[in-house]
Structures are given as C-alpha cells and as structure tokens.
C-alpha cells in the first residue's frame, strides 16, 4: 500500500514542483518499490497524453498577433 502523501508527491514530482532532495527521494523510492514505479509511469504517460492532445492554432492567427504587437505604436497614436 502506497501512502497518500507519497502519491501526492508523485503528482508534484511530475509537474516539477519538488526540490532536488525530494526528486532523489522519489526516484530512489521508485527503484525500491515496483508498484510506486508503475504508478509513476502510468501518471507520466497520462500527462504526456494530455499534452499530446493539445490543439494548435493556425500560423495565420499567430502572425496576426505578432503583427498587432509590431504595429502597436501606430494603433496607440490613433
């Protein structure tokens, strides 16, 4: 049975909110505990899936944003 605090630490670890010392602790724990390592892997894969499912705006939409910024001074003088 994995403690809830450890499970929550895995979430912080995946989202890079742990410090160096905590990272070493979690990585060591994952080496020693197969079920913890499995849970970490599953969580990481799920997060990767969410990232991969992000939508991408068109290049023209981004170009319009950058053009607006470049011409800001012209807009603000009007």
């Amino acid at each position: 049975m994995i403690r809830t605090s450890t499970q929550n630490d895995l979430i912080r670890y995946i989202y890079q909110e742990t410090d160096t010392e905590e990272n070493i602790e979690i990585q060591t724990a994952a080496i020693l505990n197969g079920s913890l390592a499995h849970e970490l892997h599953e969580l990481e894969q799920t997060v990767k899936s969410i990232t991969a499912a992000e939508r991408v705006p068109s290049e023209s939409a981004i170009d319009k944003i950058l053009s607006y910024s470049k011409s800001y001074d012209l807009h603000s003088l009007k």
């Binding site: 809830t4 929550n8 979430i11 912080r12 599953e42 969580l43 799920t46 899936s49 969410i50």
Partner: peptide, 19 residues
C-alpha cells in the same frame, strides 16, 4: 494543497481508466 493534489491525481487516474 493536499486536496488539490488529490484531485489532480484522481483526474489523471480517471482519465487513464477511461482511456
């Protein structure tokens, strides 16, 4: 913060199960 972390964890676990 533990509740927020727990909710995130369950969100990921639920997503994984649904997938």
């Amino acid at each position: 913060i533990n509740t927020a972390l727990g909710r995130m964890r369950y969100a990921l676990i639920n997503l994984r199960k649904k997938m």
